[in-house]
Each structure stands twice: as C-alpha cells, then as structure tokens.
Simulated scan of single mutants.
Amino acid sequence: MSILTIRSVTLRKLRWRTQGRTQDRSGFYPVAWDDGIATQTGYVLELATDAGITGEYTWTTGVNGHAAQQIESVAGWLVGQDAFQRERIWADLHRAWRKYDRLGIGPIDCALWDIAGKAYEASLSQMLGGYRERLPAYASTLFGDDEGAGPLGTPEAFADFARECVDLGYRAVKIHGWNNGDIEREIRNVRGVRTAVGPDIALMLDPSGAYETFGDVLSVGRALDEEQFYWYEDPGKEGGTSAFAYKKLRELIRTPLLQGEHVRGLQAHADQVLAGGTDFMRADAGLDGGVTGVLKIAHLAEALGIDVELHGPSPVHRHIMSALRNSNFYEMGLVAPSLRQISFGGFADYSDDLAEVDANGTVGIPRGHGLATPLDQEWIAAHQIDELVFD
C-alpha cells in the first residue's frame, strides 16, 4: 500500500457535562466540588481515506481550545494528501503556521498515526517500537477551592486524598494546590501530604503559575527540598517560560524542576533545556505537534541524558510512553474525591479512572490497531452540536 489518499476531513464539535468539579471564581481553573457540574467542549477529527480507513482523534478545549479553527483553515489542503506522509505534512504545517502556536498540528498528526496503525494492523505502541506493557502512574489532583469548603479545600483534605490514592496502589501523587497563591497554606499542604503518605511515595507539586513572586516560588521550593519532592512544576506567574528564572531557581534549591508545558515546539524546548531552565522535559501530543512532535522532544531528551514526562492522560500518551525508556510516570488526572473517572466519554471501551491502577501503581496500554480506541458513535451523536465536512 504505497499511497493512502485523504478524501475527506470531518470535524465534529461536542458538548457535555461533568460532575464533581466546577470552575473557580475567575472562571479559568477547575476545582474539586462535590455537587459541581462543569460544561465541557471537545472535538472529534476524522480523516477518511480512499481505502476506507479512517483516522480518528479526540480532544477537549480545556487543553487545546484553538486547534479546531486551525484545522478548518487547512482542511481543504489536507484533502488529496497522502496519509502515509506524516513527516512531510507535519513539516508543511509547521512552516505554514510559523506565525501561530501550531496547535492544529497535534490532532492532525495523531489521526494520521491512527490511519497508519489501522493500515498496517498494528497498535501505535507497536509501530513506535514498544518498550513496556505497564506504565507507572501518578494521581494528579484537581485544584482546591479557595473558600476551603470543597473536597480538596484544606491541607487536611489533600492529605486524606493522597493517602487514599496510595491505598489504591499509586506510588506517586502530584498536588495542584489553590489558585490564590497563599504561600503559607501551600507550604502546610506540602508538609501535610508528605506526613500522610510517608517517605517512600514520589510527590510532585504543580502550582500552575499561581505564585506571584520569585520569593514565593523560592519559599515553597525550599519546603519541597525538606520534604524530598520528586519534581517542582511551573510555579511562577510568568508561566514556566523564563529559562533565566528557573536556571536561577535551580541554583538555589535541590528539588528537580519540570518545565515546558507552556513552551511550544521542538526548538523552544531545546532552547529551554540547553539554557538550564529545567531538569525534566515536558511534552504533550495535543500541544507539541502530535506523536511526531513528542517523539522529536523525547529523542532530544534522550540525547541529553534526561527524561521526558507526558502531560495529561490520553490513549495516545499511553502508547507513546510505552515506547519510551526515558519517561517515569503516566499522569492520571485531574482527579479528586468528587471526580474519579476523567476521560472523554466518547470512547467505546477506554477510560482513565482513578481506581484503574494495579497493586504496583501501573496502568495498561490500549490493545488493537492504531490508537486502539474505537469511538462510541451513539454517545457522540447525542452530544454533537456542530459538524464541518470537507471533501
């Protein structure tokens, strides 16, 4: 099968409601809330070929809100392209969108890899080479509410939930604290969670840019040193993009830094790590150019002798991590006592669920061809609010 021509591009827009979370007062950030109901928006991209093979990829706008508009702008160009030429399509779009954030590349590339796997009757994990069958996972919490009334409203509540996660089998937990940057409360949380889970559990902290000053970032970092945290992620309001600031922080604390979630593309990731701005690298198939883009970042990290950690849960990330040596944990999040099943509802037989881990704290990888996650077409039809077709 030398050529597989794309004959149509379909983009479906979906809307659904999720229980157990709500938005904070700003409306920007999700927080755990027992009776909360959050409205979510997402998309399904379908690339149909002349051989009857269709590549599919889904995402939510909470992570990648602008990809659909970019895909719409090149859908006509995609029709007629050879679906096997992933690298050329990636490179052409990388140039075409050089003035933009290139978020549209990720969904397109993932759908192309789905086509390839279905054509060759192999899973994405197998096509990437395969390295392991089980993935160590960490429980990654939702934010706490600033009022302190929700299921993660206090340091004590975080400690209780972390202990529950360990009882389920997790050997690692990541904390997203509060969005108001109360540093004393953040430090109490760091110490309380460590006391609750003991010394043998890997703990991470991701303030998601909540801390106002470098002094705040440093104060919490020193507490992390004392409590022997595994990594410290994107603490400052500059967004985790200043290599200078985090090189300086690395000189002042011992806890390794994980930066790069808000840095787009291979070259920017390379510049950040070579400037000394991080210890671990971060990559995301939705944000960093799909499977192809993540592999470029992962191989860069491997060449430098460091690790790459994949941002957020998804079947694509399970496949990619299963083929990487230099990656430590799969992110199971964002979870809370009020929200345990967190994946997109349109999969027929796949989910990310807090209780999924085994006694060793690991999760499996999807089985089948391509992304190996058939869609629940009935659920999708029930939640579809718009559709665009280009042929």
Results as ranks from 00 to 15, higher is better:
Pro107Gln: 01
Met127Arg: 05
Tyr100Gly: 14
Gly104Tyr: 07
Asp101Pro: 11
Ala111His: 04
Tyr131Thr: 05
Tyr100Ile: 03
Trp113Gly: 00
Ala111Glu: 06
Gly129Trp: 04
Ser123Phe: 04
Leu93Gly: 09
Gly117Ser: 07
Cys110Glu: 01
Ile108Thr: 14
Arg132Ser: 01
Trp113Ser: 02
Gly117Phe: 07
Trp90Thr: 02
Asp101Cys: 10
Ala119Tyr: 13
Gly106Ile: 09
Cys110Tyr: 06
Ala91Ile: 11
Asp109Asn: 04
Cys110Val: 10
Ser123Gln: 02
Ala91Met: 15
Arg98Gly: 01
Asp109Ser: 00
Trp97Ala: 05
Asp92Met: 13
Met127Lys: 03
Glu121Met: 10
Leu124Met: 00
Ala119Thr: 12
Asp109His: 01
Tyr120Ser: 07
Leu112Asp: 13
Lys118Ile: 08
Ile108Trp: 14
Tyr131Met: 03
Gly129His: 00
Ala119Val: 11
Ser123Glu: 05
Leu128Ala: 05
Ala91Gln: 15
Leu112Cys: 08
Arg95Gln: 11
Ala96Pro: 11
Ile105Arg: 08
Asp101Trp: 08
Ala96His: 15
Asp109Trp: 05
Arg102Lys: 15
Trp97Ser: 09
Ala96Asn: 15
Tyr100Arg: 15
Tyr100Ala: 13
Ile108Cys: 14
Lys99Leu: 14
Trp90Tyr: 15
Pro107Ser: 06
Ala111Val: 05
Ala122Glu: 03
Ala116Glu: 10
Gly104Lys: 08
Arg132Lys: 12
Ala119Ser: 14
Ser123Lys: 01
Asp114Gln: 05
Gln126Lys: 09
Cys110Arg: 02
Ile115Lys: 09
